[in-house]
Design a protein around this nucleic acid. Sequence first.
DNA 1: TTGACGCGAAACCATTTGGTTTCGTATAAT
DNA 2: ATTATACGAAACCAAATGGTTTCGCGTCAA
Lengths: 109, 109
Amino acid sequence: MAEPSPKHDVFQAIADPTRRRLLRLLDDQEMPVTVISGHFPMTRTAVSKHLRILADAGLVKEKKVGRETRYRLDPEPLLELKRWLAYYERYWENKLGALKRYVESEADS
Amino acid sequence: MAEPSPKHDVFQAIADPTRRRLLRLLDDQEMPVTVISGHFPMTRTAVSKHLRILADAGLVKEKKVGRETRYRLDPEPLLELKRWLAYYERYWENKLGALKRYVESEADS
DNA sequence: TTGACGCGAAACCATTTGGTTTCGTATAAT
DNA sequence: ATTATACGAAACCAAATGGTTTCGCGTCAA
């Protein structure tokens, strides 16, 4: 279970819209870099750097096949985001605000 | 319903760990800036700028009371994050990976 | 074996980010 | 009326970010 030295965390990784598009794209299929970068209005190198950031965050896995590197989505790290978000779940659980008002009244006492 | 010109979006807002801590802190209680900044190892001005970014993203509301500005959490914009995340929900819906393997086998055909 | 292809590394650049200190101003307290 | 408090604005700075072009290297094709 050795932590893979998360130089980039999930929150930071998904902050960029290009990287979110990458995740969506790679959700459908595994793809080599050149094909991937064909979907974006920037150089292959730029896309490659985004892919590296996603890989650092564990959101994407790379597989070398011949001279190409294929990437595919690994959604697992999104669970951390899900857990983080779950904390606020209570806010929109019961008609978005009932519990909120309750908590606020608790804070007064 | 005029969009308040979202200079900062939710994804970017929660990318910073300090801002995530701010959200947690303000979830409990409404607080003035000086009190808030007492919880962080940086200047009041720095915290104030983080609060502005959160406010831009709509994650926090400010209320002027006398000479102080009180902030409180507004979790509503987190729904966008929730919706974005919901797209990947199918991955861990059924034992985390069953569907994933299915999709991958689809890609082969 | 000689190219062409697929890719990352490196160097570079402009802009953004996260922080600081200093200052101005509005409000509250004495 | 004067002083202290609460805060934002502004100017500034170092580092990170998102992008580029150039180069080198491994791999497949002629």
